[in-house]
C-alpha cells in the first residue's frame, strides 16, 4: 500500500498546514519609501493650495457657475460636437479618396492630409480668420456669365465661423488617417470574398470594409473627441467667447487671473472625465476584436445540435 497523504512534518512548527498557508506579496523598501514621500509631498501641496489666500477659492466658487462661464462652456461643447461631427464626415470622405485606385483622387487626399497635419492648428485657425486678406470677395455664380452673387468674405468669416472651419478641416485630416488605418486592418480575404460575389466598390465599402473597420476606428475617435474638447481653447485667440475666452473676459475686468483659470480648468477636467467614461466603455467593447465576436453574437445561445453534412 502506498501512503495516500504525504507526511506533514512541518505542521509541528506553527500548527498550520503548510499547504494552506497564504502566499504574501513582497513589499520592496522602495515601495515603502515611495508611499511616505508621495504622501508627504501630496499633503504639502494640499496644505499650500488650501491655505494660500492668492488662490482665492471663494472667487473660484463664485464664478464656477457664473453665467458668462456657463455660456462659454456651452459654446465649447457646441464647437467640440460640431467640429467632430463635420470633421469625421469629411475625414471619412478623405479616407475613401485616399484608398482610391485612381491616382489623382488618392493624391488629392494625400496632399490635404499632409498640409493639415503638418501645420499647427493654431496657425490654421488664424489663417482662416484672415482668409479675407487673400480672397476679399467670394462670388457664387455660373462661370463666364453675370449670374451670381458676391459675398463679402470678411463678413462671412466671423470668428465663430473661422473657428468651426479651422477645427473641422484640421480634425478631418486626423480622422482620415484614423479611418484609413481602420480600413487597412480589414483582411485582404474579406475584400476578395466581396469581389468574388460581384460586389461593387461602394457596396464593398458600406457592407464589408466599414463595419469591420469600426472596432479600430471608434476607440481612436473617442480619443480625438477628448482631445478636441481641449483643443477648442485655441479658438480664444480669435475672440470666440468659448470657455477659456469667457474666463479671460472676466479676469481682464477683475484681475483675478488665477482663480478664473482654475474655474476654466475645472470645467475642462469635469468634461474630460465625463467623456472618458463612455470612451473607456467603448474601448472595452472593441478590444475584444481579437475574438472577432460582434456584439450581437453574445445574445445567441448555442443550443441547437450540430448539423451533419449529408
Amino acid at each position: 500500500m502506498q501512503p495516500v497523504i504525504i507526511e506533514r512534518s512541518e505542521t509541528t512548527m506553527s500548527g498550520m498546514d503548510p499547504a494552506l498557508k497564504p502566499r504574501l506579496r513582497r513589499r520592496s523598501t522602495f515601495e515603502s519609501v515611495a508611499w511616505v514621500v508621495c504622501s508627504l509631498v501630496g499633503l504639502g501641496i494640499l496644505i499650500s493650495v488650501s491655505t494660500n489666500p492668492n488662490f482665492k477659492w471663494g472667487v473660484v466658487a463664485q464664478y464656477f457657475t457664473h453665467e458668462t462661464i456657463l455660456r462659454g462652456l456651452m459654446l465649447t461643447i457646441f464647437l467640440t460636437f460640431a467640429s467632430m461631427a463635420l470633421g469625421t464626415l469629411l475625414g471619412l470622405g478623405l479616407a475613401i479618396m485616399r484608398a482610391s485606385s485612381i491616382k489623382p483622387v488618392a493624391a488629392t487626399a494625400g496632399v490635404y492630409i499632409t498640409l493639415f497635419r503638418g501645420t499647427p492648428v493654431l496657425v490654421q485657425l488664424i489663417f482662416w480668420f484672415n482668409i479675407a486678406a487673400l480672397y476679399p470677395n467670394l462670388t457664387i455664380g455660373i462661370p463666364f456669365t453675370d449670374i451670381g452673387t458676391a459675398i463679402d468674405v470678411n463678413a462671412l468669416m466671423a470668428p465663430i465661423t473661422a473657428a468651426l472651419v479651422g477645427l473641422t478641416l484640421n480634425q478631418a485630416a486626423y480622422m482620415a488617417e484614423i479611418i484609413r488605418g481602420g480600413f487597412s486592418a480589414v483582411g485582404k480575404g474579406q475584400i476578395e470574398a466581396a469581389d468574388s460575389l460581384g460586389m461593387s466598390g461602394a457596396m464593398k465599402m458600406r457592407k464589408v470594409i466599414i463595419p469591420q473597420a469600426m472596432p479600430s476606428i471608434i476607440p481612436a475617435t473617442g480619443n480625438q473627441f477628448i482631445g478636441m474638447f481641449k483643443e477648442t481653447s485655441l479658438v480664444s485667440v480669435l475672440g470666440v467667447a468659448e470657455l477659456l475666452q469667457s474666463a479671460q473676459l472676466i479676469y481682464a475686468r477683475t484681475y483675478e487671473t488665477i482663480p478664473l483659470l482654475i474655474v476654466a480648468s475645472l470645467w475642462y477636467l469635469v468634461m474630460t472625465l465625463l467623456l472618458s467614461y463612455p470612451q473607456a466603455k467603448l474601448e472595452q467593447k472593441y478590444s475584444r476584436t481579437t475574438s472577432r465576436l460582434p456584439r450581437k453574437a453574445k445574445k445567441v445561445v448555442l443550443t441547437a445540435p450540430e448539423g451533419i453534412a449529408r
Binding site: 480575404g189 474579406q190 476578395e192 470574398a193 466581396a194 469591420q212 472577432r292 460582434p294
Partner: peptide
Amino acid sequence: MVFQQFNLFPN
C-alpha cells in the same frame, strides 16, 4: 469561389 480561409463576413 470558396477560399482556404473561408473569408466569411464576420459582421
